[in-house]
């Protein structure tokens, strides 16, 4: 992607992201943060691209893959666990 297009894309993400995320209620702020941990694991893509180059730094790239995958799996899983906690309670109360 050319630099100018990339810049516009990033700015669009910032504006849309702000609008969407500012509407998340305080109740869900902890799951939001752990979900963001998962999303910051997006570096995994960059790490995989680095792995495709045969070069001396590939050990570092492997370490990056480990940590970024840890973020993705850990982040999504802990968020899922927390949200189920909220959701199941909500359902039970409604049924009672």
């Amino acid at each position: 992607m050319p630099a100018a297009v990339l810049l516009v894309f990033v700015l669009a993400c910032a504006v849309l992201g702000y609008r969407v995320i500012a509407a998340v209620p305080p109740l869900l702020h902890t799951p939001l943060m752990s979900g963001m941990n998962a999303l910051s694991g997006i570096t995994l893509l960059v790490a995989l691209s680095a792995l495709s180059h045969e070069e001396p730094g590939s050990l570092l790239a492997l370490a990056a893959v480990v940590l970024a995958t840890g973020n993705v799996v850990g982040g999504f899983w802990v968020t899922e666990r927390m949200l189920r906690m909220f959701h199941q309670r909500g359902k039970q109360e409604a049924e009672e």
């Binding site: 694991g41 790490a47 990056a64």
Partner: peptide, 12 residues
Amino acid sequence: LNGFGGAASALV
């Protein structure tokens, strides 16, 4: 996990 994210970006 914040730390993992930061470290992964720096390592890459």
